[in-house]
Design a protein around this nucleic acid. Structure first.
Lengths: 193, 193
DNA sequence: CTACTATGCAACAAATTGTTCTATAGGGGG
DNA sequence: CCCCCTATAGAACAATTTGTTGCATAGTAG
């Protein structure tokens, strides 16, 4: 038995609007009333779908924070793989809803277990991608196993996030080139000594 | 003509409570009503001091986000100076209100010009401290001027913030030792080539 | 002591939040 | 095509929150 298409349509319309409000005005303004006004969906219907303000906000967060699937590229060389992967990550921060919403998820995570789960899951995926790139480089013999890979992964991801979320500095191609260069030089000079 | 001590007392008591609420329950719960209930100060008095919810929240943010003065230590060696400075930064993240509040300032900054100002000012101070340490190392001839100092500074500060605010991983002495080791090895191997 | 001003308190309007009921319209199964 | 089920819209409603105002009281400065 299939799900009533009206349920699906309502959910989609409502969360689209909630997402937009979340990005434009912040979590404080994501309420049943605001979503109702934005969509024309009646308040009572919204309450039926999300019984309170918190579950509505959670739903909006969760919808945005779903990590895009990143097709792996690990055929080397390291610089090229890293550049490619971090390019996607940077693109996501610059041009997708995730980039706009991330600060608010970060904030929610400090007082809310649910949001913390969302973000740590998300980061685990990111780290796994970078990890795979380094592992492949070790497998090819491009770098040796005694490189401090865990630290490098953390630096690789930390820099763009810090730059975007906390410093509000531009993330552009030039910056990324420099960043990848530095990471590679660390990996190479620490390799096999 | 001195300021009425009643004004000072009210401000202090109210903001103490606002700060506590901000840390424990998040920015959403910092309201005139909540502060009034927590302090016994009447709502009308609070409204007289802070005309709307936003100015109350801003005041609470601003009070916490005031950077502590860090006495500079730049007498070398680089590893020691860096370890000392980042130790203070880490301590602040772990054990002061700033560490608890930072995520919410980050979030506010994404939709609020005022909060963005608070955080960029704050970071400018941090960067200046780290910069001074590297500059001193260059001055002593411990590293050469062609080290990518700006990138190193960013990595130095980004890592602890990312780790604490976004990954919610522990910031401890062992981690910091590794972090500083890596930074120094980058600085040294990139030096004079 | 006097003039000034911050506070507390109560009453109030307005907006928001959440609930419930009914009528209506859409969808799925026979 | 028809009937049953269910989702939605809309309105009415209570409770809470938000912000305002007027007045009495009490603390402060000169």
């Amino acid at each position: 038995m299939k799900e009533d298409p009206r349920l699906i349509a309502t959910r989609q319309t409502a969360l689209d609007a909630a997402q937009k409000i979340l990005m434009d005005e912040g979590v404080l303004h994501v309420t049943h009333g605001a979503v109702s006004k934005a969509t024309g969906i009646s308040r009572s219907t919204l309450y039926r779908h999300w019984p309170d303000a918190r579950s509505l906000r959670d739903a909006a967060f969760r919808r945005i924070a779903t990590p895009p699937n990143i097709p792996p590229k690990t055929d080397g060389p390291l610089r090229s793989d890293l550049r490619w992967l971090l390019g996607i990550l940077m693109g996501a921060l610059n041009d997708t809803p995730w980039g706009q919403i991330a600060p608010q998820v970060v904030a929610a995570a400090s007082t809310d277990e649910e949001a913390r789960l969302v973000i740590t899951e998300f980061m685990k995926d990111r780290f796994a991608s970078v990890e795979a790139v380094f592992a492949a480089a070790v497998g090819r013999g491009e770098i040796t196993a005694d490189v401090p890979v865990d630290q490098l992964i953390e630096l690789a991801v930390a820099a763009p996030y810090f730059r975007k979320l906390i410093r509000h500095e531009a993330l552009d191609e030039d910056w990324l080139d420099q960043h990848v260069d530095l990471l590679c030089s660390i990996a190479k000079t620490n390799s096999g000594q």
